[in-house]
Design a protein around this nucleic acid. Sequence first.
DNA 1: TTGAAAGCGCTACCAT
DNA 2: ATGGTAGCGCTTTCAA
Lengths: 356, 356
Amino acid sequence: MDKHNPTRRPVTVADVARAAQVSKATAARALGGYGAVRADLKERILEAARRLDYRPNELARTMATGRSGTIGVIVGDIENPFFGLAVRGISDVAAQAGFDVILSNSGETLATEKASTEVFLAKRVDGLIVAPATRHDGSHLQDALGRACPLVLLDRDVPGLSVDVALVDDHKAAREATQLLLAAGHRRLAYITATAAADVHYRGPEQIPLTTVLNRIAGFLEASDIAGLAEAERQIRLDAAKTARSQTILLDLLRASGRPTALLASDSKIALEVFRAARALGLHIPGDLSLVSFDDADWTSAVSPLVSVVSQPSYELGAAAAQMLVARIMGDKAPPRRHILDTILIRRESVAPPRS
Amino acid sequence: MDKHNPTRRPVTVADVARAAQVSKATAARALGGYGAVRADLKERILEAARRLDYRPNELARTMATGRSGTIGVIVGDIENPFFGLAVRGISDVAAQAGFDVILSNSGETLATEKASTEVFLAKRVDGLIVAPATRHDGSHLQDALGRACPLVLLDRDVPGLSVDVALVDDHKAAREATQLLLAAGHRRLAYITATAAADVHYRGPEQIPLTTVLNRIAGFLEASDIAGLAEAERQIRLDAAKTARSQTILLDLLRASGRPTALLASDSKIALEVFRAARALGLHIPGDLSLVSFDDADWTSAVSPLVSVVSQPSYELGAAAAQMLVARIMGDKAPPRRHILDTILIRRESVAPPRS
DNA sequence: TTGAAAGCGCTACCAT
DNA sequence: ATGGTAGCGCTTTCAA
């Protein structure tokens, strides 16, 4: 059986109505599944729709109702397995609640994030989930709120913004990871993060655009402090996003006299760079250098040595964010919620006592 | 300066027109950047728009024009770096051509892919790029075409569908990779793929839903044939998607007497499973087992041993797909194009002569 | 239960 | 160059 609608023009309710010999309104009711329609009429209408291969125009529906049945998600880097899993969490609960998800990548860039926000608002998404690229500018997010578009922050907070958030307890996570290293006997630790910064050295909180990193640094410093380590701030390195840059940073760090004997990597990409640098310097992990990394990336549990990681519940994080958003879309007026999830420290093989 | 539009109702062209004391049509022309408007009037209108914080409603615009300025992309698994990069390629050329991109994950499931296609068509995307989950059912894609929605296939072909495709020369890639192993002296090779199948053993082409895998198998068999290896088909393993399953398969394969001395992994996830299995069996790579993997995943160039890979030009693949799609949207009526890209074989450390 | 008609916000055609 | 107005396809009063 071939096309019944050889013409270019798509089939509309009006067409179906005509074919079923009822009014446009009745056809629309039957097709849209609202209002009440006599059973036999409904049957006739549905039959006609089937015959004509009618497909509802979501756009028109959205225009008329104001609801699109779609939620927009903006993350920094979808290739990052952390966000990949989170998006799956979001999609699953969204689908269950009858919402579609459309995705956008900010590339960790504020400008792109703003543009994406704009696009989503213009497309009239019913709600927004975003992992903001910076805590320093939330004007576009405020804007979404102002336009009555529910918003939930994922993974990263924007202080001053009064919205639901789904976060991880990064402070505690970093503290525990650091203490794992400390407990093994290390006294010279360093923390490496990919977060963009003008200077690779840590000068203070203002410099840091991500609340996650801010909290992790705080946790790292707190643990160092408790252990009585002096000047732990000096062992923090920023801006290790690209391979070349991280290699410079790591090689620099690991070639210095009094080099760190243990590293805390802020994400699995950096852990990989640590592997690379260690290789280049002939340093053995964990013999010469201990390592703990954030994110339980797939390769960390397959290569030698298996790497000890801070596993983040990213799927649950996404699911929680979506749950809150759906509730808001449904009209939930409660004060903003803060959903904070715990991480799990997975001990594997990349931590050993310092050799000295 | 705070909100000028404290009411809930969004600002429309009509509002701006009123404020600027011009007709709705004129305001629309100035705001929409079409038609002609006297300079001073235009200025007045834009000023009013700014003052009222006017934001165009893309939906209404789409309804009126029929064009959404959006292209929909459906891939099997966005967390897969291969698709991640491809999507970036797509986004870049799309953005440059003035299109937004919305993304959807099929999870390599036909049903989800169909649903996503439906959603995108209903949202009136201007074009579709999809990496189909199976070559066996293209009805939904045919449907898109039938509804005058341009379509480009990414990475995987659907025979019988007369559309533009952006593919990689998988046959050649697999043949070369196999020959690398052969040249090292191996005579017992195996090829492992994640492709879903009822049986882990290869029975024939019908069984294989992905043209990529089909072509790779052909390349593997051709190289084996040329080298005079008998019964190479028996060294093919399917359905190694999940960790548990792949471990069963690999352990089985590697514990057999006359076990393969070299493996060709169909993607980097499988390569990881090979690492895992080798570890479990105390097999050393490449001493006891050589390995070549498809996809130049980040970790393959950082861990020990560095793994030799077939690097796929996924960014370019995405860019090419988007280029063709944009051309079609712009009205290109030429016969379907087939854009076939070459892979690069990167020799690293995971291949060595068999020990025997 | 059904039908007529008024929007939703914008574009585009047709006069002026 | 400008203004009036008819759609785009659907939902949603309001009467009947």
